[in-house]
């Protein structure tokens, strides 16, 4: 969309199930091996966990939920990408579960296309663009929007919980 700038995008590529995703490399803080995940009861599946990142409590998000993918148990390739995302204008550190992390690469801006409105399995507003590399596609997710939607949904769930409680 309009946010896709000219020039190259420095991106970290990671795999979720069968799809290759790319996130802005400069937003990535670190990549961790799998750590113990604390489940948050009643939290939406997308952000159902908390992890300890160097003494900080950080929410762990599973993008596979938002893209309607299968969620098999973690294996030896599973990594946590700790990123800085903006939620309601507030910079927040969050972890993202990845089935495998590949490498940091340049994606030519020219090769990035807007997400097609039809013919896509995923909700188009979650996809910022689709890039091409080595003949394959790379999905560039719109993290800001995904997390924002999530915030709204948590709020509505909490509100209904409130209602049922009273």
């Amino acid at each position: 969309m309009s946010q896709v700038q000219a020039g190259a995008m420095k991106a970290l590529t990671l795999r979720l199930q069968d799809e290759l995703f790319a996130v802005e490399a400069c937003d990535v803080r670190e990549i961790l091996d799998l750590v113990p995940i604390t489940e948050v009861p009643n939290a939406p599946e997308f952000v159902g966990g908390l992890i300890n990142v160097r003494g900080r409590v950080v929410p762990l998000a599973d993008l596979r939920v938002m893209f309607g993918m299968d969620r098999p148990e973690p294996d030896q390739d599973t990594r946590i990408v700790v990123m800085e995302v903006e939620i309601d204008g507030e910079p927040t550190v969050a972890g993202i579960l990845a089935d495998k992390v590949h490498d940091v690469t340049d994606i030519e801006a020219a090769s990035i296309e807007e997400a097609p409105k039809v013919g896509m399995r995923w909700r188009p507003e979650f996809v910022k663009g689709i890039g091409k590399r080595n003949g394959g596609f790379i999905i560039i997710p719109d993290l800001g929007r995904i997390f924002e939607t999530q915030g709204a949904r948590t709020a509505s769930i909490a509100a209904s919980e409130e209602r049922s409680a009273s």
Binding site: N42, V58, P59, T154, E162
Partner: peptide, 12 residues
């Protein structure tokens, strides 16, 4: 430690 915005609405 405070919970992030993602979880702040879970009241328990």
């Amino acid at each position: 430690k405070q919970l992030s915005k993602l979880h702040s609405s879970i009241k328990s």
